[in-house]
Amino acid sequence: MSTHIDADLVRHIGKLSRIELTDEEVTAFVRQFSDVLEAFGKLQELDTENIEPMAHAVELQNVFADDTPRPSLTPDEALANAPDRVDDFFRVPKVIGGGA
C-alpha cells in the first residue's frame, strides 16, 4: 500500500505523539517517513491470509501472581524525581478547559 506523506500528516502524527515539531523537522520527516513506509510496504509482497498474528516471541498464557500484599514505594520515593510536587501530589498545568 502507498500512503502519501505530507507536512500536514506529519504534523498530525506529531500531535498524536505529543511531540512539538519545528518546520525543519517536519520537512525531514516527510522525506524519511515516505522512505520508511515504502520499506514497510515490502510486506505486502507476502500472502499472510491464514497466518495467526504473533504478538510475543514466547507465548506464555495466564501468568498469575499470588494475591498477597507486599511492600511498595513510599510517597516520598515515588515523588523523588517529580519535576513539580505539592505535598504528596504531582503538580501539573491545568488539565480541563485548556489546550487541544
Binding site: V10, I13, G14, K15, L16, S17, R18, I19, E20, L21, E25, F29, Q32, F33, V36, F40, V92, P93, K94, V95, G98, G99, A100
Partner: peptide, 30 residues
C-alpha cells in the same frame, strides 16, 4: 505553559533525540 498537552509536547520536543522522535511517530502512525 498553561495547559497540560502543551507541557507534554514541548517537554518531549526539548528532550528527546531525532531518532527517538522518528520511532515514536512511526509507531503512532502504524
Amino acid at each position: 505553559v498553561d495547559d497540560i498537552v502543551t507541557m507534554y509536547s514541548r517537554s518531549r520536543a526539548e528532550s528527546l533525540g531525532e531518532e527517538v522522535k522518528r520511532r515514536v511517530m512511526l509507531g503512532t502512525y502504524a
